[in-house]
Design a protein around this nucleic acid. Structure first.
Length: 990
RNA sequence: GCCAGAGUGGUGUAAUGGUAGCCACGAGGGACUUAAAAUCCCUUGUCUUCACGGACGUACGGGUUCGAGUCCCGUCUCUGGUACCA
């Protein structure tokens, strides 16, 4: 074999692995198990870019390393194949999303294979396969047929609940959820209920339940979005406006698990940032619910939630959310008009306005008063949109001296701001939420401290029946329904207007074929188009489908037993694999997928279907690899607003966006429309306010740096690349057909002087023209080089910009490694000579360090060490089997193709490297000759002194005493004691 | 605003509290070559010195320590998350 040819070697081994199913894993083994999981991707049409494989490479290294260390490793891959983009594409083209998805998956599998990942492809799952989503639907039915018993603190089958209804009625049942929606009835009444009444009574107990809910309705997409899918009041996909709307929705009662989801975090080996995000998301707060009776009413009362019940004497008014139930009843005649107007104004304000307009104080007085339960003082009742209907009770007691928001409100409307603690300061300027000091103006708690006051007040309120301690969560139940086609059908049908779960034996409920993928003319979801889609030919099905996170909430279980038709996973397989030992994926799923998965797992555990405590023991977030975008700026321009033209658009769109150093970004533009506009209709005018809607477009960096620059050559080159006519526009000039024109006159102009190329680092994305395709790099350098380089870039968890330049370094390393085996690029030439101590030292340092590094996921430092090792062995002219064979094993997780090839050349069976044993580390080869310790007298370092590295503390002591240092530094005294800090310092006490 | 995390050469980065900058990229110089590619060798934190050397250097200001990039306090900047959550 001549020179190192990665392309040949890699093809050969990828084919070998595939043909021999080298990485197929058994569900039983004498070896200990280890489960390494990547977050499975959505197969987008754009294919993989260099950022995607980062985590896959790292997990593959761990997988291969663990195999060498004697583990039975499960390392599967699959596809989260339901999702919006395929559906959008279907709406545009009429092509069935399944076709698009299959095509994309094919590309993904090809790309993943070309990187040499050791997945067990026989276990591949796709969430859009009926054989998979059958079980997603099955779990949904389990949720639908369960309730959460607060007495046992777990989910239980609904049949247990109905049995209790029949025996003792609804009294004494404590279930998670809002009791306000539930009926109260006796056992006798229950017996008399019709079937429909029974189901209606049970519905508010179910873990999957239907309810009128305020949702993020996106008219542009014709669907409901989760909070995670809305950014700044616009849909994350497409950037369409989103509004609040009350709609009947399927919900999952994740709030029942809030406490357990919170407590479980402590046991997990996850990044602190992710745990903290989940904690904040769940948002547990400990406080009290206090009832304020309404003045002049026998029955009306307002419940507020507060975490600072100790400040209740400073509560000078109440504020209700405009949506609060009692608003109508409370409002007095005189205030009616003002209140109605305020509520109308609030409805007009979109969620987005509310968010961006946080500082403005608005509100209206209802005219009504409530009585402060601790002192019977009347307090005004106001409405304001800063109080959220969905949190707590939708009403707050306002304590202007203790809460800045209440303070601003009081100041704005001229309400009193009484002090309540002797420690409060500067109340003429701002609120002081201190818990220090002792209370004043505070009735029964005057003179007490915070710690004393809170329990006393809660006790007092409880005896009056006007309050109690209460825990609140910020987290809401998860909305579980999309008005979409390309998702799992919800296995529900309607009989007489009541929802029924379909029988388990009738699963899967297959997604029906429809002719168009849009909502129907009457506004029903796309499934409304399915002809004769009826359960038992009679009953209409639920028309919404499950959200994207449904299938991904349990896929890691299916990998354990992917083809089981009788069960979602067999008991034996589930018990053997347990939970995921290492989960690799992006931090962006912290409060979505990772929380939902834990929720489903806890639920399945309550039903006795899974056996571990948590699904993912260790989590690593690989950082994102960012793309480099470039903009050409002309220096010194300050006059015109910054203008960017959008690429690829048929419509001429001029965008205005925030200034970048007072310079103008260059842009390119589809020539079809622009040329016409430029040449026939006169001056270009920037159009305001559309930037956020259309986003920015970018020029690929290769076309404005280096030779091309932003000029005629660049413009023509860029056209070739883009495959369509285009115009470069910059400031007052533009290029078209290689000629520079003035924008205002459209006459040929002088080429502008200097351009500055500004680079910006941002997410890699097709629309930003900053994508680096891994295939190109694999073709040029090989997959092993790409794998090594991605690891070499820096710490795995770090976000970093992609830069292809450095790849030549790792490529050189592979060539040098090859040359250790093939000096002069000839045939394999390793010798059986005995290794020298120097060579053994190099090898064993590498064994030690690489092993340590993989265990702590520090892959970049390992790659550095490989390079040092090869450099040193080259310098030693070491071509000995005794050194090189272990080195191959060491490198094999990182560069598997090259390692396999060398392993075979060394005389081993083809493909056997993955079953070899990781080389053993031996410390004796690492011994240094001497080591230098700082030598201190009474803690003051006076000298550096050399000792044999193997010396014991006693030997060092002798050496120190024998030295002449005391004569020089000890002022003639003798040593009382010699303290040896191992490896650090020798301290002599005199 | 609040909660995390991070600030080290031209760049990516490395450094159990113990010689800061390992390993690479880039740059400069050299060898080989008709030439190029490939490969190999040397230099490369800043300032200063003909040179040997010296001084200064891990965002900024303090502190602990014999010794701080690392630990503590404060400030600034950046990144991510989150937001009228009562």
């Amino acid at each position: 074999m001549p020179a190192y040819r990665p392309e040949e070697i890699e093809k050969k081994w990828q084919a070998h692995w595939k043909q021999h199913s080298t990485f197929q894993t058994q569900n039983h083994s004498d070896k200990p198990k280890y489960y390494v999981l990547d977050m499975f991707p959505y197969p987008s049409g754009a294919g993989l870019h260099v950022g995607h494989p980062l985590g896959y490479i790292a997990s593959d290294i761990v997988t291969r390393y663990k195999r060498l260390k004697g583990f039975n490793v499960l390392h599967p891959m699959g596809f989260d194949s339901f999702g919006l983009p395929a559906e959008q594409y279907a709406i545009q083209t009429g092509q069935h999303p399944a076709l698009t998805t299959d095509k994309n998956i094919e590309t993904y599998v090809q790309q993943l294979s070309s990187l040499g990942f050791s997945y067990d492809w026989s276990r591949e799952v796709r969430t859009s396969d009926a054989s998979y989503y059958k079980w997603t639907q099955w779990i949904f039915l389990k949720l639908f047929n369960s309730w959460y018993n607060l007495d046992t603190n777990k989910a239980e089958p609904l049949t247990d609940l109905t049995a209790r209804f029949a025996a003792t009625g609804s009294d004494g049942i404590r279930a998670a959820g809002d009791d306000g929606d539930r009926l109260s009835f006796s056992a006798g009444q229950w017996q008399l209920f019709s079937e429909k009444q029974k189901l209606a009574a049970v519905l508010p107990y179910r873990l999957a339940y239907q309810q009128d809910t305020y949702v993020n309705w996106c008219p542009g997409l014709g669907t409901v979005l989760s909070n995670d899918e809305v950014k700044d009041g616009l849909s994350e996909r497409g950037g369409f406006p989103v509004e609040r709307r009350l709609m009947p929705q399927w919900n999952l009662r994740i709030t029942a698990y809030a406490d357990r989801l919170l407590a479980g975090l402590d046991q997990l080996d996850w990044p602190d940032a992710v745990k903290e995000m989940q904690r904040n998301w769940i948002g547990k707060s400990i406080g009290a619910e206090v009832t304020f009776p309404v003045q002049g009413s026998e029955t009306a009362q307002i419940k507020v939630y507060t975490t600072r019940v100790d400040t209740i004497y400073g509560a000078t008014f109440l504020v209700l959310a405009p949506e609060h139930d009692l608003v109508n009843e409370l409002t007095t005649g005189a205030q009616r008009a003002a209140v109605d107007e305020y509520i109308a104004a609030t409805k007009r304000r979109s969620e987005r306005d509310r968010m961006t307009d946080v500082k403005a104080v608005s509100g209206v007085f209802t005219g009504a008063y409530a009585l402060n339960p601790v002192n019977n003082e009347p307090v005004q009742i106001w409405l304001a949109d800063y109080v959220l209907a969905g949190y707590g009770t939708g009403a707050v007691m306002a304590v202007p001296s203790g809460d800045q928001r209440d303070y601003l409100f009081a100041q704005h409307f001229g309400l009193p701001i009484p002090a309540i603690s002797d420690a409060q300061k500067d109340l003429d300027q701002q609120a002081d939420p201190t818990k220090e000091g002792r209370y004043i103006n505070s009735g029964i708690i005057n003179g007490l401290t915070y710690k004393e006051a809170t329990p006393k007040l809660i006790a007092f309120l409880e005896t009056q029946g006007l309050g109690k301690g209460k825990v609140n969560f910020r987290q809401r139940d998860a909305i579980f329904g999309r008005q979409r086609y390309w998702g799992e059908p919800i296995p529900i049908y309607y009989k007489d207007g009541t929802a029924y779960g379909i029988a388990e034996s009738d699963l899967p409920l297959i997604l029906p074929e429809i002719d168009e993928y849009k909502p129907t003319e009457t506004g029903e979801p796309p499934l409304g188009r399915a002809a004769n889609w009826l359960y038992k030919d009679k009953y209409p099905y639920e028309l919404s489908t499950m959200p994207g996170w449904a299938g991904s909430s349990w896929y890691y279980l299916r990998y354990m037993d992917p083809t089981n038709e009788a069960r979602f996973v067999s008991e034996e397989a589930e018990q053997y694999w347990g939970s995921v030992d290492l989960y690799m994926g992006g931090a962006e799923h912290a409060t979505g997928h990772l929380l939902y998965s834990r929720f489903w797992y806890l639920f399945l555990k309550d039903l006795g279907l899974v056996s571990s405590g948590e699904p993912f023991q260790k989590l690593i977030n690989q950082g994102m690899i960012l793309g480099m975008s470039a903009f050409a700026l002309r220096e010194g321009n300050t006059s015109r607003s910054n203008t960017l033209l959008v690429a690829g658009s048929r419509e001429p769109v001029l965008l205005n966006f925030g200034g970048h150093d007072d310079a103008v970004r260059a842009a390119f533009y589809s020539a079809d429309s622009l040329a016409g506009k430029l040449f026939h209709s006169g001056k270009l005018e920037p159009e305001e306010g559309r930037a956020s809607k259309f986003g920015q477009r970018h020029v690929p960096i290769d076309f404005i740096k280096g030779d091309h620059n932003l000029d005629a050559v660049g413009q023509i080159e860029f056209e070739k690349w883009l495959g369509e006519r285009c115009v470069f526009v910059c400031d007052t000039t533009f290029w078209y057909d290689g000629v520079c024109y003035d924008i205002d006159t459209q006459k040929p102009a002088e080429k502008p002087e200097a351009f500055l190329v500004i680079r910006e680092v941002e997410k890699m994305s097709k629309s930003k023209y900053n994508v680096v395709n891994p295939n190109v790099l694999i073709d040029k350098y090989g997959a092993d080089a790409l794998r090594l380089y991605e690891m070499f870039l820096g710490p795995l968890e770090q976000y970093k910009p992609w830069n292809t330049n450095g790849i030549s370094g790792v490529s050189g390393f592979l060539k040098k490694l090859w040359r250790l085996f093939h000096p002069e690029d000839g045939d394999l030439a390793v010798t059986d000579e005995l290794a020298t101590p120097a060579e053994l030292k190099v090898l064993h340092r590498a064994i030690q360090k690489v092993q340590e590094d993989i265990e702590k996921f520090s892959f970049n430092t390992s790659v550095s060490l490989f390079m040092i090792t090869v450099n040193e062995l080259t310098a030693l002219k070491c071509h000995k089997r005794a050194i090189l064979e272990p080195l191959v094993l060491l490198v094999s997780p990182y560069a598997p193709h090259l390692a396999e090839e060398l392993w075979q050349e060394l005389g081993h069976t083809a493909g056997s490297i993955s079953h070899a044993d990781y080389p053993e580390f031996r410390e004796e080869f690492l011994v240094e000759d001497t080591v230098t310790y700082p030598l201190a007298i009474n803690g003051k370092v006076r000298e550096q002194m050399q000792f044999a590295v193997a010396a014991t503390a006693a030997e060092i002591e002798t050496a120190v005493l024998a030295s002449d240092f005391l004569a020089r530094f000890g002022e003639g005294k003798s040593a009382k004691k010699v303290i040896v800090v191992p490896g650090r310092m020798v301290n002599v006490v005199v």
